[in-house]
């Protein structure tokens, strides 16, 4: 199991966290077109390499945090 560096609790097993994936900015709901909105819902970069992603420390401090992870090697670092 990989370790996720929690800024509050230190490195913990990834099993303590819920994976949140790439954060996607929420379009302004008053002006967003369907295309933009569905891009927000469905499109992800799916990078093979370093990516920034969100995790939720479900079993620990219950904080959402941001981590950089290489999706090929699974190396992680704090942004």
């Amino acid at each position: 199991m990989i370790l996720i560096p929690c800024p509050w609790c230190g490195s913990r097993d990834a099993g303590e966290f819920a994976y949140g994936g790439e954060p996607t900015p929420r379009p302004d709901p008053r002006t967003a077109t369907r295309e933009q909105w569905r891009g927000y819902l469905y499109l992800r970069n799916n990078v093979a390499g370093w990516t920034t992603e969100r995790w939720y420390h479900r079993m620990g401090c219950r904080r959402y945090l941001t981590v950089q992870r290489n999706t090929v090697t699974n190396e992680v670092r704090q942004p």
Binding site: A14, G15, Y19, G21, E53, T71, V72, N74
Partner: peptide, 9 residues
């Protein structure tokens, strides 16, 4: 797996 990855290890 519970998170996205290209790893097959």
């Amino acid at each position: 797996d519970p998170f996205a990855s290209y790893s097959t290890r």
